[in-house]
Design a protein around this nucleic acid. Structure first.
Lengths: 143, 143
DNA sequence: TTTATCTGTAACCAAATTAGTTACAATAAC
DNA sequence: GTTATTGTAACTAATTTGGTTACAGATAAA
């Protein structure tokens, strides 16, 4: 099973807000046309990003603004904002406690699953929105 | 979104085969009663583990056996056997190429997503079935 | 050789999740 | 006042998951 596209859409959304917030109102419609989806899908994600304290969504028709410095917004922050996973790995319910394996499987495995999830999260934490902004600026200037 | 319980069931299954293969036929029914699910669910996973070269499923009513040393079977091997994910992260389709962000988002983000997936996999690769066997033996001896 | 057991697989189901959609009240800009 | 936008509810279609029944084919045990 996979991590949903809500995450990549959220990153895309924040980049659009960063690049366009000074020149125009960054509305859900504008974002949707760059992401290529429905504006309501974007509004749901904007709602998550607002809740996480990464953006403000201005009332009326004023679009959204970043309220944190891009170098303070990591991919992990974005991931947690939109995909609020507590534990990445599912575990089968109620293994048989009469069995030596069933009785101990949780204790034996849980720590390793937490480690793996932490490794994923630590990796995401290393990259910031600013890093992506630089990469895009570089690509655009090369043209 | 989460990683399915197929993974934890597969680990449970391999541990059962290890601990019981000498004393009884480890059948899908026996495994299912320890995992607490339906035997067909187990057979599907046994099929994956066989395909991955981790076990042999003996014909008739002879159960399954490990065909690799537990210290050569990592959690990553098991994960890949049952959850065959190519890319862990979904990415939204067809971002708008007319937009500087839409045009570059894939290039900017893909590498970081691959890094994060690799970090998860490297972590899973560190633990072997033997490690779990030791942990269970330790727990059982303490009783 | 007959009977019981087990695997492999197809077919189906219910529940959950996802992305997408329509609709509309509330709000602010123009 | 009119228009544009947000926030949210409600609905849909598609997909995935775990569970289930059914059964042909293979093997062990009697």
């Amino acid at each position: 099973m996979k991590i949903t596209s809500r995450f990549s859409i959220a990153v895309h959304t924040l980049l659009l807000i960063y690049f366009f917030q000074r020149s125009r109102n960054v509305t859900s419609n504008f974002i949707a046309s760059s992401v290529n989806t429905n504006p309501v899908v974007i509004r749901r994600i904007l709602s998550n990003l607002k809740e996480a304290g990464l953006i403000e969504v201005l009332p009326g028709r004023n679009g959204s603004k970043l309220i944190k410095n891009p170098n303070k917004i990591s991919l992990l922050d974005i991931f947690k904002a939109v995909d609020s996973i507590d534990t990445l790995f599912n575990f089968h319910d109620n293994p048989n406690p009469e069995c030596p394996v069933g009785k101990n499987i949780h204790t034996a495995l849980d720590g390793h699953l937490i480690d793996a999830q932490k490794a994923l999260e630590d990796s995401l934490a290393k990259t910031t929105l600013e890093d992506l902004i630089k990469e895009i600026n570089q690509k655009e200037n090369l043209l």
